[in-house]
């Protein structure tokens, strides 16, 4: 059990690292587009890299963060039927979810890998004076697919809730604003709180309901 837990800890750290990259990408999108606006209006010399890089950045900002929030049980889901099931069936439903997610992760990893191979073999590249080789987005998807498959196995639904319930007083939903590294959210001056509430709400259809 402790071997499993340390494996989980390690995998979660990897997933978090990718999510942090995703966050950095959003920040860079903001900065590079602002830079492009400035040089466009002030110098009439827009960059040719802002457009393709930010389009590629969007894919990275999304797909790299997906495994981490899956491991934390924070994607949008509907627990309308699930919460009405007897606990045995509920566990079966969770197994189906884990299997479906594993399947998605594997399909993503395999197909993105093949697509990456096609792109490398064919030397495929985007159009334009600044072009990104087409294997790059495929590599991002491949990474996300592999990690999604791993977290699907290691963090079946309920894992995050169990952990969260142990960490939070009963009745409080786990929050997104939670500190990276798993500490309970202490950074909650009243002004900071709204954003946390919002973050938790996105996947929280289930959360509020289960606990009501």
């Amino acid at each position: 059990m402790s071997a499993l837990n340390s494996l989980r800890k390690y995998v979660l750290a990897c997933a978090l690292a990718l999510a942090v990259v995703a966050m950095a990408v959003v920040g860079l999108m903001m900065l590079t587009i602002t830079y492009d606006v400035i040089v466009r209006y002030a110098l009439a010399a827009p960059t040719d890299w802002a457009y393709p890089l930010n389009a590629a950045g969007l894919l990275a900002a999304t797909s790299l963060a997906v495994p981490y929030f899956y491991a934390k049980g924070q994607h949008i889901s509907m627990d309308l039927v699930h919460r009405a099931l007897p606990s045995g069936l509920r566990r079966a439903a969770d197994l189906v979810t884990a299997a479906a997610t594993l399947f998605l992760g594997l399909v993503l990893a395999v197909t993105a890998f093949r697509s990456m191979a096609v792109a490398i073999k064919g030397g495929l590249t985007g159009a334009g004076t600044f072009s990104i080789p087409l294997w790059v987005p495929d590599a991002v998807l491949f990474t996300s697919g592999v990690l999604l498959a791993v977290v699907a196995v290691l963090f079946p639904p309920g894992t995050a809730e169990d952990v969260a319930e142990a960490e939070h007083p009963p009745g409080e939903a786990p929050s997104t604003g939670e500190a990276p590294g798993d500490a309970p959210a202490t950074a909650a001056p009243s002004e900071g709180a709204p954003a946390r509430g919002e973050g938790r709400a996105a996947p929280g259809t289930g959360e509020g309901e289960t606990r009501s």
């Binding site: 040719d48 457009y51 393709p52 334009g128 004076t129």
Partner: peptide
């Protein structure tokens, strides 16, 4: 001038003429 282009050679044409290609 900022001129919209659709491909690499168009983009380089604009650059060669002293303009800025925009995708």
């Amino acid at each position: 001038l900022r001129l919209r282009v659709a491909g690499e050679i168009e983009g380089e044409t604009v650059k060669a003429l002293g303009g800025a290609p925009v995708t």
